[in-house]
Write a protein that binds this DNA or RNA. Structure first.
Length: 226
DNA sequence: CACCAGGCAAGTA
DNA sequence: TACTTGCATGGT
């Protein structure tokens, strides 16, 4: 197998870690808040999501039962800063609907089981696509899945590790293969590694990997550009 | 002013 | 399979 790209991906992590340190993701006070944030941040900057989460918090709606009970239109008004607010209100209601009605509000129960089964369970919910499902799986459910996002694709393609239009699945397959076990074979360490790897990519992406700019001199990954 | 932000679903060819 | 469009606020 080709080990050069595997080395590059590992080197990238070392460089990012050296530059920023561990990120301690996902930024949330509970697993439920993590899941809500995952839906709210769809195609939306995190600073806007924080405003929406604060609104939910001060209206005591950051809990499964409360969110299930509240009117969808009211919920939509609270999350306005995050954009697509009617759409996301419906998606949040769909998520808590399954959580309450099928799992009695027990998020641990909803996220536990065989990874592929739980993933399909999440994808079946309206408004939850691959990235949102994988974020929930990794950060709230501690499942070993690599989260692919716009930053992942942009950074990787800019370094020649994937195509600019690489599909979600093929890019995730690449990460699962190349970043399978940098430390050891334990599932736990792989989960923690992938949590921080994705967080590092977002950090680097926000700061150095802007759209429509072929490269950035100050990027810590600059040395890896072929 | 234009462009962008940690996507997803539904429709079309 | 591979586009295209709608969704929407707020920052740069």
């Amino acid at each position: 197998m080709d080990t050069s790209s595997a080395l590059s991906l590992d080197q990238a992590y070392e460089l990012m870690l050296k530059h920023h340190g561990h990120q301690g993701w996902w930024p949330a006070e509970s697993d439920f808040e993590m899941c809500v944030g995952a839906i709210l941040t769809q195609n939306t900057s995190w600073t806007q999501v924080v405003k929406a989460l604060d609104q939910l918090r001060c209206n005591q709606c950051l809990a499964p039962n409360a969110m299930h009970a509240v009117d969808e239109a009211t919920l939509a008004q609270w999350i306005r800063p995050a954009g697509y607010f009617r759409l996301k209100a419906r998606r949040l209601k769909a998520f808590v609907g399954v959580l309450i009605e099928t799992f009695s509000g027990d998020l641990v129960a909803m996220l536990e089981g065989e990874t592929s089964v739980v993933r399909e369970r999440l994808l079946a919910i309206h408004g939850i696509g691959p990235e949102t499902a994988d974020s929930m799986l990794l950060y709230a459910g501690n499942h070993p899945v690599f989260v692919v996002d716009a930053y992942t694709r942009r950074i990787f393609s800019r370094h020649g590790w994937c195509s600019e239009h690489e599909s979600y699945q093929s890019l995730q397959d690449l990460c699962h293969e190349k970043l399978g076990c940098s430390c050891c074979d334990e599932k736990v360490s792989r989960v923690e590694f992938w949590k921080d790897y994705h967080a590092q990519l977002v950090r680097i992406g926000k700061e150095f990997c802007r759209p429509r700019q072929p490269r950035c001199q100050a990027c810590p990954l600059g040395a890896l550009i072929g």
